[in-house]
Amino acid sequence: MATTLLNVDGINVYYGAIHAIKDVSFHVEEGEIVTLIGANGAGKTTTLQTISGLLRSKTGSITFEGKNISAISPNKLVSHGLAQVPEGRRIFLQMTVEENLEMGAYTQPSGGVAQDLERVFSLFPRLKERRRQVSGTLSGGEQQMLAMGRALMSHPRLLMLDEPSMGLAPLLVEQIFEIIQNLNHNGSTILLVEQNAQMALSVAHRGYVLETGKVVTTGTGSELIESPDIKRAYLGG
């Protein structure tokens, strides 16, 4: 039986007076791809940032591998096995590709970094060609690969991706989702936030639909893709 890796239970997050996340609960089992979908401003990024500790919930709890992590600082959570590819990639534009990856390995013992670099380069050969290039000069797709590679450098047990398809051409989006599926086949557990509901649901085992800070529907990927409500609201049909 699969074990629960991440359990989010009744969190409420505020930006000053704005109540952005309202009693949100969901869980991710080991080995799954779980997606959070929803329109602009639904609260997807806020949810991820709360899990990674950049924002705090007023109530409820977040447990990771059975441990309550809701009060742990974001930099410490990395050693617990959480990694996030933030919205808009947020790579270090003035640093080289290789330096960005090294930053991803910041919590790792230095002895294994060279090997991890090779592992990431074999996933993203484009990055290897450009390892000495300043990353601000990479294309959007390459920057997304770098952001993903950087997150993988810390050997996360849960990889959280915030809109990896944002701003990419359709062909590249497909490539990125293929990589996500491959990572999952090789054992990575993934929490995927997307506005591209079609793509996200087609790769996800399960999904949750967020609307104005609340979970309104949940189900398996295929259930949600077939649901008339979802089709109308998110899949343009």
Partner: peptide, 16 residues
């Protein structure tokens, strides 16, 4: 240098 560019992203790398 990472902190100088983006503190939140640096934290997500595990940098204190």
């Amino acid at each position: 240098r990472a902190c100088s560019e983006d503190k939140a992203a640096a934290q997500l790398m595990g940098i204190n």
